[in-house]
């Protein structure tokens, strides 16, 4: 009877049930990826591809680049160069100068680009029609110098370039040297609203109408692996009710068409879900930054994998017999 009971118990309950061992947790690609990522971070800079970041224009939406940069910094990405247009130039310049991340977030929290909202608020349809004079974007230059000083491109911690357009010739002008503040101001100088910046023999306006995602500028800096941060406009739900909004819509459309061209030349792109934030909704800057962080974090494993596969030769040299 007792033997029968014991036998039936053994049949009912597999032997493993009596083991104290717990099953190994599930694991997958992350073991190999994390290992190779550690190996990658030990690679000397001359053995790996030069990593370039490209930050698009987008005004208030462009604040997503702050979240993008935070995720990459946390993950230990080497950043060998940055190229930016418009708001991408502002964020890129501050980051390249070593402006602290928490202070970058604070800019968005306070929507400190209120100079822009203040000026836009002053613009009425009547002002645009009646006034011949456009406004000056001097405030942007002051904004930059107040935060990082009156420095040059050569003073930056990370090589940086930004793009503007010469309104008289239509040429894309890439800044890589000289005074930083005027270059950034030129890159974020909306045509038709602000006066062109006269610098040397050029009449400069926002780079977003010439090169909204300046991948070529990053390559010209010597970057070999390009990660782009794209802040697309929500063209469908634009509210078009005066000359200003039509003007902005035209610039958004142009910027988006240019960005789509540049995306093809990037190794990886993070497209932030910021289409619902309008060009001038600077009070939503902080929210744009959060969306940028979330999307970049979600894509981070794939970004790492792409870079690792690109660097595979150098990464695994030591694992192949001579």
């Amino acid at each position: 009877m007792k033997c029968g009971l014991l036998l039936s118990l053994l049949l009912l309950f597999p032997a493993r049930a009596f083991c104290a061992d717990s099953p190994s947790p599930l694991y997958g690609d992350e073991i190999v990826r994390d290992f190779l990522w550690s190996e990658f971070q030990e690679l000397p800079a001359d053995k790996r591809p030069k990593v370039g970041l490209v930050l698009s224009g987008g005004a208030a939406r462009g604040f997503a680049h702050v979240g993008f940069l935070e995720v990459l910094t946390n993950a230990g990405f080497p950043i060998d160069g940055i190229a930016g247009t418009s708001m991408g130039a502002v964020i890129g310049a501050l980051f390249s100068a070593g402006f602290p991340m928490d202070q970058l977030w604070e800019l968005g929290r306070r929507a400190t680009f209120s100079y822009a909202t203040k000026d836009f608020n002053k613009i009425g349809v009547l002002s645009l029609i009646l006034h011949e004079k456009l406004m000056s974007s001097d405030a942007m230059e002051d904004f930059i110098t107040q935060r990082i000083g009156d420095i040059t491109f050569e003073d930056l911690q990370i090589p940086f370039s930004c793009v503007a357009m010469d309104i008289k010739t239509g040429e894309s002008i890439v800044f890589r040297e000289g005074p930083l503040a005027i270059a950034v101001r030129s890159s974020m100088n909306l045509p038709g609203i602000f006066k062109p910046v006269q610098y040397r023999h050029r009449y400069l306006v926002d780079g977003g109408v010439a090169d909204n995602l300046p991948v070529d500028a990053a390559k010209a800096l010597g970057m070999e692996w390009i990660l782009s941060s794209h802040t697309p406009a929500g063209l469908d739900d634009a509210s078009l009710h005066n000359i200003l909004t039509y003007l902005l819509q035209v610039m958004e459309i142009r910027g988006e068409l240019l960005a789509q061209q540049s995306i093809k030349d990037s190794d990886m792109v993070v497209t932030h879900k910021v289409q619902h934030i309008k060009f001038t909704e600077f009070e939503k800057s902080f929210h744009a930054g959060e969306l940028g962080l979330e999307e970049t974090y979600r894509r981070l494993p794939y970004i790492k994998e792409n870079l690792l596969l690109r660097s595979f030769g150098a990464l695994t040299d030591k694992y192949v017999l001579p």
Partner: peptide, 20 residues
């Protein structure tokens, strides 16, 4: 199929060893 990155990394190593 379940580990696409490991699969790619394996393919690359296989190429290297084959070349050698």
């Amino acid at each position: 199929i379940t580990s696409p990155f490991t699969a790619q990394a394996a393919e690359r190593m296989l190429e290297r060893l084959s070349k050698r």
